[in-house]
Simulated scan of single mutants.
Amino acid sequence: MDSDDVLKAGLVLVAAFVLLPLLLGVMALPMLLGFGHTGMGIGGVGVLLWLVAGLVPLVVLVGIGYLLFTALSGDGEDRAIEELRAAYARGELTDEEFENRYERLRRDAEPSDER
């Protein structure tokens, strides 16, 4: 198990065991403070707090999902270059083959400006 796998597993555990209970607590905050009960009415501060308490966890969960997705998907270009370097180090490629393949990987990885 390499360090990337440990990092990915750590991110999943943090999201599951730390952030989820925290988000549930934020959602319950207006109820714990007593907002939304008598005296606040439909247009009162309680409705606003319930709206925020519902949207904040949603935004945080989407952010966590994005971070987990990017961490778990990895970067294929870096791995291809690592494999190319390993093959060169093992003597499977000549200098010219390595340079050609390296330049091609770099060129393919650059975003194109064509529209």
Rank of each mutant, 00 (worst) to 15 (best):
E92L: 11
L11E: 05
E83N: 09
S112M: 02
L20M: 10
L7Y: 03
R79Q: 07
P111Y: 06
A89M: 03
H37Y: 10
Y66M: 12
L11P: 08
L19D: 01
L23R: 02
E83R: 15
L32W: 13
V18C: 09
I64Y: 11
G46Y: 07
V26N: 02
L58Q: 01
Y102A: 06
S73F: 02
G39F: 06
V56D: 00
Y102F: 15
G44F: 10
L84C: 02
I81Q: 02
L72P: 07
P111Q: 07
D5K: 04
G44T: 10
W50L: 14
Y88V: 01
A9G: 03
V62A: 15
V59Q: 04
R115A: 04
G10D: 04
L93E: 08
D95C: 03
A15F: 08
G41M: 10
R85I: 00
R90M: 02
V52C: 06
T38I: 08
V62H: 04
N100C: 00
D113S: 07
S3C: 03
L55K: 04
G44L: 11
D78T: 13
A86K: 09
E83C: 00
P21Y: 01
G36E: 02
G10K: 08
I81K: 07
L33R: 09
H37E: 15
V14P: 03
G46W: 08
L93N: 08
L7F: 07
E114N: 05
D78G: 14
A80F: 02
A86R: 09
G65K: 01
R104Q: 13
G10R: 10
G65C: 02
R106I: 12
P30W: 04
D113F: 12
E99Q: 14
L72Y: 03
L55P: 00
D75C: 08
L33K: 09
R107P: 06
D95S: 08
L13E: 08
D4I: 14
L24P: 11
T94E: 04
E99L: 14
M1W: 05
Y88S: 10
G46N: 15
G63D: 08
A80W: 01
A53C: 11
R104K: 13
G36Y: 11
I81Y: 00
L61P: 11
A71K: 01
L22G: 09
F17A: 13
L72Q: 12
V56W: 04
A15I: 01
V26Y: 07
G74S: 05
P111D: 09
G43L: 10
D2F: 02
S112C: 01
E77G: 03
D113Q: 05
N100D: 15
L58M: 15
I81A: 00
V12C: 00
L22T: 11
D4K: 11
T70M: 07
R106N: 07
I64H: 09
G91H: 05
A53S: 15
E83Q: 13
Y66N: 05
L13C: 05
G91D: 05
E92I: 06
D108Q: 09
L22P: 00
F35M: 09
E77Y: 07
R90V: 02
M1K: 04
N100K: 12
S73I: 13
L93I: 05
P57G: 04
L49N: 06
